[in-house]
């Protein structure tokens, strides 16, 4: 299994655990005296599961298993694959902190951080589709 696949998959496992912890904390609010800002983590919980875990797991497995692009470049354009890894994780991490902070504080800084996280994740998706599309072929 190539190093980038291992990175994608192990990072996705970390997000899975963090997402499940947040999911438990969201429910625990009803029985434990937890801070009210936790309620703002609901969209973060869902997106950590769907983007941080499931989508990232698919990116990693696709890098590994899709048909070779060519004999010289079996995975396609590696620089673009690495870019998709860093862009995706920068975007997800930034969102994880910026979205609840944006809800709790006034001021433009956290708002711009949320917007930046959107752009980063979008670019990660474009980079992934660019490479994966080239490898969606007969053999």
């Amino acid at each position: 299994m190539p190093i980038l696949t291992r990175l994608f998959i192990k990072t996705s496992f970390i997000y899975l655990i963090v997402a499940l912890l947040i999911g438990a904390a969201l429910v625990a609010r009803s029985v434990l005296p937890l801070p009210p800002w936790l309620a703002g983590l609901s969209p973060v919980y869902f997106h950590l599961l769907m983007v941080g875990w499931v989508t990232q797991l698919i990116f990693g497995v696709a890098y590994w298993m899709l048909p070779k692009y060519s004999q010289k470049q079996p995975h396609g354009f590696d620089g673009v694959w690495w870019a998709s890894f860093w862009l995706l994780n920068a975007g997800v991490l930034l969102r994880m902190f910026a979205e609840p902070m944006r809800a709790a504080h006034t001021g433009a800084l956290w708002g711009w951080a949320v917007a930046a996280s959107a752009v980063l994740q979008w670019l990660a998706g474009l980079a992934f589709v660019f490479n994966a599309w080239l490898r969606t072929k007969e053999r």
Binding site: R95, A98, E99, R102, A108, W110, G111, W112, A113, V114, A115, A116, S117, A118, V119, Q121, W122, G125, L126, V129, A132, W133, T136
Partner: peptide
């Protein structure tokens, strides 16, 4: 199937990014 999934991913991500951007700015 896979190429149509990519097509939908691009549009789904674009709309999601617009929504998230709008949440911030």
């Amino acid at each position: 199937y896979i190429q149509m999934a990519f097509f939908n991913l691009i549009w789904g991500l674009t709309f999601g990014a617009l929504l998230l951007y709008h949440k911030g700015v």
